[in-house]
């Protein structure tokens, strides 16, 4: 069977879902016909969307039931408003009852929708609590990051709460977007128009080298699907079997050591050098496959 390549970066939210899940398995909750739009955008004479920029529903992947939310980066940068955020929170709460194999968050968002900033900030906090509650109930939550808006602001925090983060090189993950930093701190701090710099500071290869992304995949939906299938094939993280305090103490130690090891780092090149890549300058040009092979080699060398 020949599989048509669908660029994850270029596809919209619905096309990503269609190519990600088992054919015909997707059922949407609160579909556009129900017209859950944002009254706050309407008040500002801004365009509204009948799904408020996020598609939520259930499907199967390789026969396993999942709940999923896909943010539409082409609508207001995937930003989280009251309705948009409530759909994601409701999905995560539903997971505690439905007990799917996983919740998939197809994150493509600059964070809080500033047109309804307070509602968006609170919604993100509610999503954070709901992710933690789903995980506490034993449901793995996976983030997929490969869209044009990346995962920034509060959605960058939500992404880092997830059990697994699948990224393409084109995916970007952070907190404050380069444009915001440039506006406040100046172009000398962060030149947001220097696209290669932006990718070296926020992109998938940087996040994978730091261990923040758990997999780097190619920019096609089939590669993301393969990554999801690999996650689903692993046993779910046993919340009861581990002492969370010890896990968090270890995470604390890892984060502190990273900041000490990379005290002078300002660029992804510094991170790749520190990780042990033989030619850091060449890393941006590597395919995902070559990158993963080199990373496996340098990590094996560190361990030996």
């Amino acid at each position: 069977m020949k599989i048509k390549r669908v660029s994850y970066f270029e596809a919209n939210a619905r096309a990503r879902i269609a190519a990600l899940v088992d054919e015909g398995s997707f059922a949407e909750f609160c579909p556009p016909e129900l017209r859950h739009t944002s009254p706050h955008l309407a008040r500002l004479d801004a365009p509204v969307a009948f799904d408020d920029g996020v598609v939520v529903g259930r499907a199967t992947v390789a026969g396993q039931p999942v709940l999923l939310a896909a943010q539409e980066g082409k609508f207001n940068g995937g930003a989280v408003g009251e309705v948009h955020g409530a759909k994601i929170r409701g999905l995560l709460e539903r997971a505690v009852q439905d007990k799917p194999a996983a919740v998939l968050l197809l994150v493509d968002s600059g964070g809080v929708r500033l047109h309804e900033a307070n509602a968006g900030l609170i919604a993100i906090s509610e999503i954070m609590r709901a992710v933690l509650a789903a995980q506490a109930a034993g449901i793995p939550v996976l983030a997929l990051v490969g869209g044009s808006c990346g995962a920034f602001g509060g959605m960058g925090i939500v992404t880092r709460l997830c059990d697994e983060v699948l990224m393409s090189e084109e995916g970007r993950l952070g907190l404050s977007g380069p444009e915001v930093i440039e506006t406040v701190k100046g172009v000398g701090e962060f030149d947001s128009r220097d696209r290669s710099l932006v990718w070296r500071v926020t992109g998938g290869k940087l996040r994978r080298a730091l261990g923040e992304a758990t997999a780097l995949v190619d920019d096609d939906v089939a590669s993301f699907r393969a990554g999801v299938e690999a996650c689903l094939a692993r046993p779910a993280p046993g919340r009861d079997a581990i002492d969370d305090l010890d896990v968090l103490l270890a995470a604390q130690d890892k984060l502190q050591r990273r900041r000490a090891t990379l005290a002078d780092a300002r660029d992804g090149l510094d991170v790749w050098r520190s990780t042990g890549f033989p030619d850091p300058q060449a890393v941006p040009m590597l395919t995902a496959e070559s990158f993963n092979q080199q990373l496996a080699v340098v990590q094996a060398e560190v361990r030996s």
Binding site: R160, G174, S176, R266
Partner: peptide, 13 residues
């Protein structure tokens, strides 16, 4: 707001 904090993953902290 800084490039260094973004690089090191402030969102993860």
């Amino acid at each position: 707001l800084s490039r260094r904090e973004e690089l090191l993953g402030l969102n993860g902290c």
